[in-house]
Design a protein around this nucleic acid. Structure first.
Lengths: 173, 173
DNA sequence: CATTGACGTGTCAAGAGTGGAATGTAAAGT
DNA sequence: ACTTTACATTCCACTCTTGACACGTCAATG
């Protein structure tokens, strides 16, 4: 249900077309929220119907530039300050850990160490991305930075945990 | 798509009815994967159709006890060792961070500190749960412990990060 | 014996999310 | 002039997930 708010949030920065939004999802939001083209256009239609956004301008190639409206801004604010983030507990990689007992101890350790390496690679990728981005003073950048730091800490934690867990399995026999 | 594997994994430990599985989802797997009753029964039906599980016994009240089959075990193993955990990046709470610029600095800091407290409470809850559980030698327990440790580390990291981020916002002005 | 509560299975509607295809226009390069 | 690339929207078919509802059984309690 947060796709709606992701779109509103992006439009709150500046007006954009569906196409623009998709690119924003792929770039700035890629590590935080993903959306496909069908979702974005669909959501824009629904948001327009309920008056939270409006078509502010039409451009070449049938381009429709959407802008957030006052009710839209109110809804966004409401979401930010008055609703709790949903704790959707669902992790594919953690689920596997529960069933590691079905593998041989060696296989299980291999799985965990592979996970550790995946995380290490991801951390490296994030650091690279961080270095590559020109951090302008745009508010999305500022807060994007906070999110990036979260990603870095998460990767690091995941790696350490996986190595620890592999160690536990080794010691447990 | 991992609900299927969660069900298979649980049935690999021991045969169970749909009702039993639901309780397992609510207890042992609650922090890792959630499932509703409709999903569980629906998935059991599909799994039975494709021969990955079978009805091993029928009990009172129309109870059907399902057991994993050899093809089921093969599928589970295949999932564990040969497929990559899906990195579905979608975090409600992180999405909000991107849009914190729409609030006043004070409101944004409040949000982050509230997040920190939520995490602290969660960590406390996990520690409590850890103390309360009798850890038998059942393989689900052993690996459940690893997952619990993950949860603890995640909560701790989340809290630290939120406090750090709030500090950043304060310093940034 | 009547009621209550835990046990147990199942269906349905609606919404969220995925993945792909169809269709076309404008701009830029060769 | 021609072709490619980028821009831009819309539609479709499918699966997954949620939440509620409907139905029925067994065991214990007062």
């Amino acid at each position: 249900m947060s796709l709606r708010h992701a779109v509103l949030g992006l439009l709150a920065e500046r007006p954009a077309s569906g196409y623009d939004l998709m690119k924003l999802f792929e770039t700035s939001l890629s590590h935080v929220w993903s959306a496909t083209q069908s979702q974005v256009y669909g959501e824009l239609g629904k948001l327009a119907d309920s008056g939270l956004v409006e078509v502010a301008a039409e451009g070449p190639r049938g381009r429709k530039e959407y802008a957030i409206t006052d009710p839209g801004r109110a809804e966004l604010r409401h979401w930010l300050v008055e609703t709790e983030p949903s704790r959707t507990r669902r992790s594919d990689s953690l689920l596997r850990v529960f069933f590691l007992g079905l593998l041989t101890p060696l296989e299980a350790q291999t799985y965990l160490l592979t996970e550790a390496e995946r995380s290490a690679r991801q951390l490296a990728g994030l650091k690279e991305a961080e270095a590559a981005i020109e951090w302008d003073d745009d508010p999305l950048s500022l807060h994007g930075r906070l999110a990036l730091e979260y990603g870095k800490r998460l990767s690091a934690m995941h790696e350490e945990w996986a190595r620890w867990a592999a160690e536990q399995l080794k010691a447990g026999r």
